Simulated scan of single mutants.
Amino acid sequence: MGASDPGPSTRWEWQNALAGAVAGFTTVATLHPLDVVRTRFQVNDGRLANVPCYKNTGHALYSIGRSEGLRGLYSGFCPAVIGSTVSWGLYFLLYNKIKQRYSRGSGKDLNPGHHLLSAAEAGAWVCLFTNPIWLVKTRLQIQTPLLQTRPYTGFYDALRTILKDEGFRAFYKGLGPSLMLVSHGAIQFTVYEELRKLSIHIKSHRGITSQCGDKGLNTFDHAVLGASSKMFAIMFSYPYQVIRSRLQQRPRIDGSATYSGSWHVVKETYRFEGLRGFYKGITSSLLKNAPAASITFVVYENTRKLIGLPSSER
Rank of each mutant, 00 (worst) to 15 (best):
S210H: 04
T10V: 13
N218F: 08
R66V: 09
Y270W: 12
L275A: 15
Q42E: 12
G277H: 04
S245A: 14
G83N: 10
V81N: 11
K305E: 07
W125T: 09
N96M: 02
K173P: 00
I200V: 12
L175P: 01
T258H: 12
R71E: 13
G72W: 02
V136C: 08
L147N: 15
R66I: 01
G105P: 06
G176V: 10
Y238T: 05
V126A: 03
Q249Y: 01
D45N: 12
F77L: 15
I162M: 08
P112M: 07
V182A: 02
A233Y: 01
P151H: 01
S9C: 11
T161A: 09
V266H: 02
G207L: 08
A257G: 03
P310I: 09
I142Q: 10
E313L: 07
G105Q: 15
C127S: 12
G154Y: 00
C127L: 08
V298R: 00
R101F: 11
L309Q: 03
L287D: 03
T39P: 00
A292D: 11
A23K: 05
T269K: 02
R104Q: 15
P8Y: 04
N218H: 06
G89H: 06
G20H: 09
C212V: 13
G2V: 01
S228I: 07
A119R: 01
G76A: 02
G174Q: 00
K230Y: 10
D254P: 04
T161S: 09
P79W: 01
Y259P: 01
R244G: 03
R160F: 09
Q15D: 13
S118A: 15
G46E: 10
S294E: 04
V81F: 02
L147F: 04
I133F: 02
P310C: 07
E194A: 06
R271E: 14
G105F: 06
V36G: 03
N218E: 15
S9H: 14
N218P: 03
T85M: 05
A290M: 15
S103Q: 13
T149E: 14
D5N: 12
I162C: 08
L61K: 01
E313I: 11
R206V: 06
R314E: 15
P132L: 10
A29Q: 11
R160Q: 12
L163G: 07
S256N: 13
T10E: 12
A120K: 02
F297L: 14
G226N: 06
R104K: 15
G308E: 04
L61N: 05
G261N: 13
L181I: 11
L93R: 03
P251Q: 05
Y192F: 15
E194I: 14
G2H: 06
R71K: 14
S262N: 08
L128K: 11
K280I: 04
K55C: 08
A29S: 14
L179T: 01
Y91G: 08
A23I: 11
D35A: 13
S106A: 09
G69V: 07
G83P: 00
K173A: 10
V86K: 01
R276T: 14
K215V: 11
F236C: 13
V224Y: 02
D254K: 01
S245L: 00
S204M: 05
L181G: 03
L31Q: 05
